[in-house]
Design a protein around this nucleic acid. Sequence first.
DNA 1: GTACATGCAAAGGCTTTGCTATCGA
DNA 2: TCGATAGCAAAGCCTTTGCATGTAC
Lengths: 147, 147
Amino acid sequence: MADHQKRFDTILRKLRDNGHKMTPQRLAIVKILARSEGHPSVEDIHARIKKDFPTMSLATVYRNIILIKSLDELLELGFPDGSNRYDGNKPYPHPHIICVKCKKILDLDLDSLDEMQHEIAEETDFKILNHRLDFFGICSNCSAEKD
Amino acid sequence: MADHQKRFDTILRKLRDNGHKMTPQRLAIVKILARSEGHPSVEDIHARIKKDFPTMSLATVYRNIILIKSLDELLELGFPDGSNRYDGNKPYPHPHIICVKCKKILDLDLDSLDEMQHEIAEETDFKILNHRLDFFGICSNCSAEKD
DNA sequence: GTACATGCAAAGGCTTTGCTATCGA
DNA sequence: TCGATAGCAAAGCCTTTGCATGTAC
C-alpha cells in the first residue's frame, strides 16, 4: 500500500475516532494533506480543491488544518511572512532544505538531531517538546538559471 | 570593552558608512539591539524607548529593524504567529531553545551544525546560505510552577 | 539647503471569527 | 433530528506604506 494511502487512512480514522464528520470538502483536504507533495500552502490546497468545489472557501481549509494539526497529524512549517507550508505525510518534526528562489522544500534525514536533543535537554534543563531545523539556500536548478 | 559596546559601535559605524543619519530614535534602537537582552520583540523595543521619546512610533522601529537587518547586523527570529524576536548581539544564525510557556529564548552552542551544513550541501546540491534551528520546550522555572 | 527620518494614519496580507444555512450520522 | 460544518463577510493582528513635517549633516 502506498505510503500516502496509509496516511490518508490514518488521518481519516483519527478524525472519526474523535467524533468529526466526513464532508466532501474535508475528504478532499485530507487527500491532499496525506500526500503533501511539495509541501502545499493553504492557497495551493484551496486552489486545487476549488476545481471540483467551486464554492470551497479558504476558511474551511484553515479550519480543517487547525483541526488536523490539533490531532497531531499535520506538521506546519510556518514562516514569518505568512507563506506557511504543510506536511501531513510526515507530521513529525524533521529538517528541511528550502530554496529561497523557487520556494521548493525538500526533506532531509539527519539522525544526529535526536542525540543533539538529548544533550541540550541535559545542558539546559528544559523539557524539550519538539524542534525546527531549516536550511536555506539555492537549488541547482535556480543556480543554473541565467538570472 | 563590553561585548555589547563593541556591537553598538559596529552597528553605528556600518550605518554611517552606508550614509545613514543618526537620529536620537535610531540611536536608542541600536542601543537596545546591540545588547538584545532576552531577544526583544518590536513591542519590547518600542515600549522601552517610549519612556524617553513619548512620540516614538512603531513604524520607526520597524523601519530601523529592516534597515539594520539589510546591513546584516541583525538576526530576526521570525515566528508565524507574528511574535518576532531580534538579536543584534549575535547577528549570525545560531540555535536557540525556547520556552513555550514563558517565551524565554536562550542561545545554544552547537558546533556540529557547521559540518552538518557541509554534508547537506554535498548531498542536495544546494548552495546553502543560512539556517535556522530552534528547540521548543518548557524551562525548569515553568516546569516547577503549580500549573 | 537638501535628502533622509519620523509620526501618524491608512492600507495590506494572511488568518480567525460570527452568523446562518446546510448536511452528515 | 441534532450538532457539527461550510460559506461568506467582517474583524483582527502585525507589518508596511503614503504623505507631510521635521531634522541631521
